[in-house]
Nucleic acid binder design. Sequence first.
RNA 1: CGGGGUGUAGCGCAGUCUGGUCAGCGCACCUGUUUUGGGUACAGGGGGCCGUAGGUUCAAAUCCUAUCACCCCGACCA
Length: 565
Amino acid sequence: MRFSNLFCPTLKEVPKDADVISHQLLQRAGFIKKLASGIYTLLPLGLKVCKKVEQIVREELSKGNAQELMMPMVCPSSLWKKSERWDKYGKELLRFKDRQENEYCLGPTHEEVVTDLIAQNLKSYKQLPLCLYQITTKFRDEVRPRFGLMRGREFVMKDAYSFHESKEDLNRYYEKMRDIYEKIFKRCQLKFSVVTADSGTIGGSDSAEFMVLAKNGEDAIVTCKASNISCNREAFSFPEPQTAISDKNIKVTKHHTPGITSIEELSKKLQYAANECVKLLVYMSDEQAKAVLVRGDHQINEIKLKKFLKATHLRLATDKEIKNIVGLDCGYLGPYKFPQNIPLIADFSIKTMTKMLIGANEKEYHYTNITREQLNIQHYADLRFPVEGENSPFKKESTLTFHRGIEVGHIFKLGSIYAQKLHASFLDKEAKQQPVQMGCYGIGIGRTVAAAIEQSHDEKGIIWPKAIAPFQAVIIITSMKNETLCQAAEELYKICIEKKMDILIDDRHISAGVKFKDADLIGIPLQIIVGKGFLEKQTFEYCYRETSIKKHGDQKEIMRVLQET
RNA sequence: CGGGGUGUAGCGCAGUCUGGUCAGCGCACCUGUUUUGGGUACAGGGGGCCGUAGGUUCAAAUCCUAUCACCCCGACCA
């Protein structure tokens, strides 16, 4: 490729709409251009890097006997209604109608389409196992798109779906896919960690996320080193603790607390630690009120709560609803003498409390020294997020540590939920009809590219891992007016092209300084400089982007170095 | 969805409070000279009816109203 011919608009200044480094550099180095919020054009270099990642993905997946296909982006609502996700998926599913007033959505993922495809064609166990995948543009109308390619609304994703005659075979393939994913991200030269995850809207049982460790990551990873557990913060589960024996010698005290409604203020005023306070939150679970108790220093994990309640829609009750139900404004709600028609559900941690501070269900009053026995708690469950630095529930001596990560891959065991809803079944060896067992496996291609930059850059620009760099090397001609230099560079370039190397030659009629700056910004791993060294000694200079180490060599040596990379 | 902010040339910004020599700066771009190993220097030049639509006024980038777009924070701590 000739730079003089390349559409690569680089910028000196940081675009004002970008504040994470990958987003800034992708724009500055001419890889992407924003069209609308969360919607980007991949410019030639951006596309080139994506293709390199895709190629790695294709090569590794084919080792797992996965076959590539391409499903439509536009999906009729009927399939989504069958799977019940037309209602469950929410606003992220972009819906619209055609001229016949038929409803459609833009596919955010393709379980429905692929399961339907299989339902229509699967007959016998002899056709299994089977794995199909595609690398296509998905659309999710994100609540808040941000960070460029890291959380766009339109994005390129590889999604694979596997089909099996038994759970055992699904388990076997899931493990295989985990290995394939590890190989893919290793080949992309990323530092990542595999963590236990929640399966979210996709549904299913086991799932694991592949997290690229980076400080700008949107996900929190919780680790207990001693027990070798690494988990998405959302999916960290606590075992049921032993019930503590309440302090029977203490007396309930009522306190007048006008204007004091926050845990922080209360614990200060009444000399009660935040972890001795209990807060009560009213949720609407499919429009049924539920009261949830959690310790003052804890946060409710709504994913867990939703699962526990088996709710389709879950939200906090509005102030108005609370007033209707309890007859009280927020701030003084408490579980003692709470309206009996609303079930009280408490987080496991409440079990370990010997006394507590709660709202009095009376304006401007709180109680202290309440014990669990005085409350009519109907259920205990694991409902909260872990807290950074708290003791591990698995190993006493160990604490929980937190890291940030970018979720670049996610694998799930779906089981037969989609198969049942979309009637994908087959005849087994005993001629019995069985629903097919499914797994699904995603990789965010654009997100992987962004994650690579988050992990590898400096003040000068991107430092691409060799495996996914847009070019192996760039040949820089320091002066286009010097014919000797041009000839030498062109000859080298010609040899590279003949050897099918992916090389850029910077033949622009501009000063050498600009060429160096652009090469650094774009992040090409190796710069080959044809300049004064050549005029003096007929040698080329080569410089590694990552280390800035400069060396000299003749054409033979350059070819050797290039073969290595 | 709530709060905050920003829309002026391809990019980054000043000008808006206090309406009138206000269509401006830097980078980028074009021409010429210069320079030729880390965004050379000088000279000249092209490009925007100031997000959009109304309104107020003799006069609007500037004031008012509406609207659109984009960005940030939050969207559970009772």
